[in-house]
């Protein structure tokens, strides 16, 4: 199992409440979420679970660990375009992605980097470094995307190596195969 697959597991399985998911081995949290030992559970984590949202452009972000006051949100807006919808030649939507966070721990020498990735992590883009106000802005073209913030010792990275502090998923990422559901119960996927 590769490191990236493990990270995907954390992104998917970490509980909205910030509690380590019992399906994950404790050593994984020791490696990936070093801040978890000293972080208190907060109401903000409980009240912002990912759910089917009426706003297709909002990406609520949740703390992956129990952390006092950590909160994040991201929003997609269409990139500047003379047309009614912003796409490239392949038909991918071109979005501006704005990330706003608050309450993240920032020990000396640590930078918070925002990453955007496809759900299976075959493509990863560094959106940018959170500024002093905890914000970042960048452009994305993924149809489905994960957005997450990591704590890093360096900003000169192509892939993250530090712990994931906040994570969210686009509304498109919530689409789920209809096989086995409702009228398609029993049909093969």
């Amino acid at each position: 199992m590769t490191w990236h697959v493990l990270m995907a597991g954390v992104l998917v399985l970490a509980s909205p409440t910030g509690d380590p998911d019992p399906r994950l081995p404790s050593w994984l949290f020791d490696r990936v979420l070093p801040f978890s030992r000293s972080i208190e559970k907060t109401a903000a984590c409980v009240e912002s679970p990912v759910r089917a949202t009426a706003d297709p452009y909002a990406l609520p972000m949740m703390a992956t660990v129990q952390h006092g006051g950590a909160y994040g949100s991201a929003r997609l807006t269409f990139g500047d375009s003379p047309f009614g919808v912003t796409v490239n030649a392949a038909g991918n939507h071109l979005y501006d992605l704005r990330v706003e966070t608050s309450g993240l721990p920032k020990p000396p020498g640590v930078e918070h980097i925002v990453w955007v990735a496809t759900p299976d992590l075959d493509q990863v883009t560094k959106l940018g470094v959170l500024d002093d106000e905890g914000r970042a802005l960048g452009q994305v073209t993924y149809n489905k995307m994960l957005v997450f913030v990591t704590a890093e010792r360096s900003t000169d990275l192509d892939r993250w190596s530090g712990p994931i502090l906040l994570r969210g998923i686009s509304a498109s990422g919530l689409m789920h195969t209809m096989a086995g559901h409702g009228p398609f119960l029993g049909m093969p996927c």
């Binding site: 498109s172 689409m175 409702g182 009228p183």
Partner: peptide, 19 residues
Amino acid sequence: LPLLQMMAVDTLYYPPVEW
């Protein structure tokens, strides 16, 4: 009814435009 059920599942996501 099957259509309404499908639409309920479908509410998880609608794209900006239906191509």
